[in-house]
Structure formats: C-alpha cells, structure tokens
C-alpha cells in the first residue's frame, strides 16, 4: 500500500524537478516553473476564477452527458433489439459517428450563438454516439440463454427490457459511459476555447491571448487533468456494484 503511493509520488517530484531545471537552463521568461504554476493556481483561487470556471465546465459536461445517456441508452436498447430499426438507422449512425465533435463547432455557434448551449450540444454529440453504439452492441451480444429463460417465465416485453436486457447490458453500458465521459471532458475544453467566455478551456486560451500568462495556461491544464481523473474514478466506482461486477473480468 505504502509502495503504491510512494513510488508515483517520487516520479511526480522527479518530473517537477526536471521541469524546473529545464526551464532555468533554457532561460525562458515565458514558460513557467512548477512553482510559478502553483502561484498561478493560488492566484486563480484568490480571484474566485478557478471555482467559477470549474463549475462552468462541469455544468456543461453534466448537462450534455446526462442528455446523451438519457437518449443514447434507450435508443441503443431499442436499436439493438429491433432489427428493422437497426438496419434503418445504423448507416446514418455510422456516417455521423466518425465526425469529430470539434467539426460541429461552426454549426453549434450558428445555432446557439456564444452561449452555454453550444458546448452542451457538442458534449451531447460527443457522448451520444459512443453510448448508443456500445448499447446496441451489448444488446446484440446478449447471451441468448438469458432472454430464453426470461421468455420461458412468461415476462411481458416491457419486463423483458426492464428485468433482463437492461441489466444484462449494464456492465457494457457503464464501460461506454466511462469512455464517453472521457471524450466529453476532452471536447468541453475545445468547445470553450471557441464557443463561450468561461470555463477551463476559455481560461487557457484567454490566459494565452491576454498577456501570455503561461503560468495560468499550465495551471488550467493541470486542473483539467485532475478533474478528468476524478470523473473517471467516479464512473469507475459504478463498476463495483454487485449488479454489474459479473460483467467485468475477475481482478481479485
């Protein structure tokens, strides 16, 4: 346990040390040292900007992501189960899916102006496809024995979805949530650089544009990394529920 903390900590300190040395050696007066970044973070906190921007980014991600889950999971379940619907819609999904959410930025701005709705729309798009596609695949790969057992007990179609298909797919759905939340967190930064005037993405681009404050740029980057990590740990904790643990390989 102690080794599990000590070693990564040592690596982290070593990286900071090398970073510091490298900046001093290069005599750069723009690239910040770790200490300057730390001061930058303190400065952001003192101005109340850090909390404000973190909340703004998290708000957009939450709304867009939750919308994507609310639509993607049911649609995925239905398309996975009803073959004609799948055959009809799958080509469209496969066509839209490879389009980077970033490519939608001009359209998002056209529709929503510089407004919270633009990044929310982009987050929604970026999460919708991975969730829908993973849910479809989960339904299509469901063990037939579960469906047959349930049908044998005479369940209604609604109950079949509620009591068998959904829980049988839940482990894979949760995995897709993890992946898509990761993507959403990447996308929100890009969206905020262009489509709004707040958030961590805006912080980075604004710190650079308004005075080459690279200490704040790196401070923003670190916050993005840290929050991304926390989000991932949160979703990952869902995988520990007994109702889904069977779906993941046994890791002791």
């Amino acid at each position: 346990m102690k080794k599990g903390i000590l070693l990564p900590l040592a690596v982290l300190l070593a990286v900071c040390f090398l970073w510091d040395r490298a900046v001093l050696l290069s005599r750069s007066d723009i690239f910040p040292t770790p200490y300057q970044v730390l001061l930058g973070i303190v400065e952001l906190i003192q101005h109340g900007l850090l909390l404000k921007y973190v909340v703004a980014s998290l708000f957009r991600v939450s709304v867009g992501f939750v919308l994507a889950v609310l639509i993607g999971v049911p649609v995925g379940l239905l398309l996975g189960w009803f073959k004609p619907a799948f055959l009809a819609l799958n080509p469209l999904i496969q066509l839209l899916r490879p389009i980077s959410p970033i490519a939608w930025i001009p359209i998002a701005i056209l529709w929503f102006k510089v407004d919270d709705r633009a990044p929310i729309f982009l987050i929604f798009l970026s999460s919708l496809f991975p969730i829908t596609v993973a849910t479809i695949a989960a339904v299509q790969n469901i063990q037939p024995v579960y469906v047959r057992a349930a049908q044998n007990f005479g369940v209604t179609r609604v109950d079949l979805f509620r009591r068998v298909i959904f829980p049988a797919c839940l482990p894979q759905i949760i995995t897709s949530l993890r992946i898509s939340l990761g993507i959403a967190w990447l996308v929100v930064v890009a969206a905020e650089m262009i489509a709004v005037n707040s958030g961590l993405g805006y912080l980075i681009i604004d710190a650079r544009n308004a005075g080459k404050r690279y200490d704040l740029v790196v401070a923003g980057m670190l916050m993005i990394g840290l929050i991304g990590l926390i989000l991932d740990l949160l979703v990952r904790s869902l995988e520990r529920f007994e109702q889904v643990r069977w779906g993941y390989s046994q890791r002791g």
């Binding site: 024995v145 047959r148 057992a149 049908q151 044998n152 007990f153 005479g154 829980p167 839940l170 109702q243």
Partner: peptide, 21 residues
C-alpha cells in the same frame, strides 16, 4: 405455440441471471 411458464426449461449452465442474488 411457444415457451410457456407452466413448462420451465433448465439450461446447461449460465441460465441464472448474474445481476440478481
């Protein structure tokens, strides 16, 4: 005509739902 709850099928294995106790 089809499966019927008055006649239950026991499968070779894994027919038990892993998400239920």
């Amino acid at each position: 005509k089809g499966p019927d709850p008055r006649r239950i099928f026991v499968f070779q294995e894994n027919g038990v739902f892993p998400w239920l106790t």
